[in-house]
Write a protein that binds this DNA or RNA. Structure first.
Length: 568
RNA sequence: UAGGACGUCGGCAAGCGGUAAGCCACCGGGUUUUGAUCCCGGCAUUCGCAGGUUCGAUUCCUGCCGUCCUAGCCA
């Protein structure tokens, strides 16, 4: 596509640092086959930030001939649920990826984790601590003040083993104690100041039921999960950089079957988009949106319902690249990729969002004319369809102005325009309501201009879309805009919270739109270009073919008139 | 006044000691029965700043500045 020099050669983009590392490891023989994993916690819906992460892990193995697994990081029974598992799998598949084998569960390794915890205790590298959470925090110190050793830090191996077994067997209450790694309370990295390994939680786990009442912490478990699965490159986001020494410490102090390595890259941030699970949940629970699949949500389900093709999302992710720079990507860049794909693939149709009656006063009574319309001017294989034309039409309200500004190509008193595929038409008069607003345009047409050209070769600047009143179909069209008005959602002003930036006009329901008869038969999730307007998708939930057409605007067309109008 | 990471065009992002790729945005122009698409052209004498090494530095070294991450019995 960017083969601008015409030689057939294109300078390839350099490998990103992750791919470079993998290539080097493969070239040097350090690893034979690259193995990655995508480890979501089953406690919510996946969003485009997750999509960036799993696209990387999956793509890298496709490119280098490795394997990528799906693993649920279900080490905390409190907020997790089986319900999310199905959704996660469906979303990943919709994005076009397939994991190796059956999905794994961190919870299925609980027995092994326990054995390794015992191994650490026996090596004098872990201990049971009875300090309260508050005491533990108190004694952890700060970035500049070293922590203080727990009074339980040096008890005997036998005692530790005995209490750990009591923790496991359920003899101890929640919060009574935790198992901690014995590293160093004065470590410069606070995460290394004797991190917790196990906490007691008497909660039913969605996979292991009541088998366990102690649950491993992320740092203790994650590297082991990778080790068990033979993961070579454990990719995660930048905020885990500080965790890497811990990841390595747990692996190095126990007899693991394999030595994985963690690499961190920058997570995705998009303008006008919140990615925090907590806030997304809030939007749903407090009814700012209609659900996790609301077309305004950045969840994969939301984007799917909005009509974004997964291939366009993938192209976008590919194009923004992978680096360690904390960046903020313009959401318009995503929209660019959506338009680019839809321009190639979406069939064109005519639809009038805000109908204004146009009557051709010199049209022969009862005559119906028929024209052949291209389904996609850029793709002859897309074929054609028949559209019919009469003297009573619907046109777009916005295409008429009583007093036209300079450079206005569209309808105005006395101005001649072309109705796409049909005829040249001139506005002669307007019927108005009590407030003076035009409710019907009275026009004359030039019979010589059939098909959109005249024998005398005269030109018109404007070509407008239209619908014939006799066969136009009523439809509901939903228009979407940024859910959050704030460009950089990390820059919430003092005294405000992000909910103050929810855009009240992010969803506009147009209930009296008119569409081509061909659109009534659209299949849910089918995408079209409404000419001169934008790209739309038949809603997956509410559109009923042949009965109730409902379309969502995916993204508008580029609008250079808006730019001209703005400049005056 | 801790440790770690990161700073290349308005936004992403290549560059790996030999004299600043690409994409988006933006600005011009052309084609067009979608003011869409498409096509052509423009858009960093400069790489956070200051020194140093070198024939030569965005690339190596030193110092400074800025941003982000870290003190859950969350992940």
């Amino acid at each position: 596509m960017s083969d601008a020099n015409g030689t057939g050669e294109e300078k390839p983009r350099g490998l990103d640092f992750i791919r470079q590392i993998i290539k080097d490891d493969l070239d040097s023989g350090r690893v034979q086959q690259v193995v990655t994993r995508f480890p979501p916690e089953p406690n919510g819906y996946l969003h485009i930030g997750h999509a960036k992460a799993f696209s990387l892990s999956f793509s890298v193995t496709e490119e280098f001939g490795g394997i990528c697994r799906l693993r649920y990081d279900d080490t905390n029974p409190e907020k997790e649920d089986e319900e999310f598992v199905r959704v996660i799998e469906e979303d990943i598949r919709w994005m076009g990826f397939e994991w190796e084998g059956e999905p794994r569960h961190a919870s299925s390794y609980f027995g092994q984790f326990y054995d390794w915890a015992v191994e650490l205790v026996k090596a004098g590298k872990a201990y049971v601590d009875h300090q309260s959470p508050a005491e533990i925090i108190e004694n952890r110190g700060t970035p500049t003040i070293p922590g203080i050793n727990s009074p339980y830090r040096d008890r005997s191996e036998e005692e530790n083993l005995e209490i750990l077994e009591k923790m496991r067997s359920g003899e101890l209450d929640e919060g009574a104690c935790v198992l901690r790694a014995k590293i160093a309370m004065d470590h410069v990295n606070i995460l290394m100041r004797d991190p917790s390994m196990y906490r007691i939680r008497k909660e039913t786990h969605h996979q292991t039921g009541n088998e366990w009442c102690i649950y491993p912490m992320y740092d203790f478990a994650h590297g082991y999960e990778d080790a068990i699965e033979g993961v070579t490159h454990s990719l995660c986001s930048l905020e885990f950089e500080n965790h890497r020494p811990l990841y390595d410490w747990f692996i190095e102090n126990v007899s693991v079957p394999h030595r994985p390595h963690q690499y961190e890259f920058a997570r995705l941030n998009l303008t006008h988009t919140i990615m925090s699970k907590r806030y997304l949940r809030k939007l749903v629970e407090e009814n700012y949106v209609h659900g996790w699949d609301d077309p305004r949500m950045p969840t994969i389900r939301g984007m799917r319902r909005r009509g974004y093709p997964s291939t366009a999302i993938r192209k976008f992710i590919e194009e923004i690249g992978v680096s360690k720079v904390n960046s903020l990507v313009d959401v318009e860049f995503l929209n660019f990729h959506v338009r680019e794909e839809l321009n190639r693939k979406a069939q064109r149709r005519m639809a009038v969002l805000n109908p204004l009656k146009l009557t051709i006063t010199n049209w022969p009574e009862g005559k119906i004319d028929t024209f052949t319309a291209e389904n996609n001017p850029g793709d002859p294989d897309a074929g054609t369809r028949e559209i019919s034309f009469t003297g009573e039409l619907w046109v777009e309200q916005d295409d008429y102005m009583d007093e036209a500004p300079r450079k206005w190509f569209r309808m105005a008193p006395g101005k001649e325009i072309r109705l796409k595929y049909a005829y040249y038409v001139t506005v002669n008069d307007a019927v108005r309501d009590d407030s003076g607003e035009p409710v019907e345009l009275l026009c004359s047409y030039d019979p010589e201009s059939r098909g959109g050209d005249t024998p005398d070769g005269r030109k018109v600047k404007g070509t407008l879309h239209w619908l014939s009143c006799h066969d136009a179909v009523d439809a509901e069209v939903r228009l979407y805009d940024h859910l959050i008005t704030l460009e950089d959602v990390s820059k919430v002003e003092e005294g405000k919270e992000f909910l103050d930036y929810v855009n009240p006009e992010s969803e506009i329901i147009v209930s009296n739109a008119k569409v081509e008869p061909a659109l009534a038969a659209a299949v849910p999730e089918e995408r079209y270009q409404f000419m001169r307007s934008g790209y739309y998708v038949a809603d997956s939930a509410d559109h009923v073919p042949g009965e109730k057409p409902v379309f969502n605007r995916i993204v508008g067309l580029r609008d250079s008139w808006a730019k001209i109008a703005r400049k005056g």
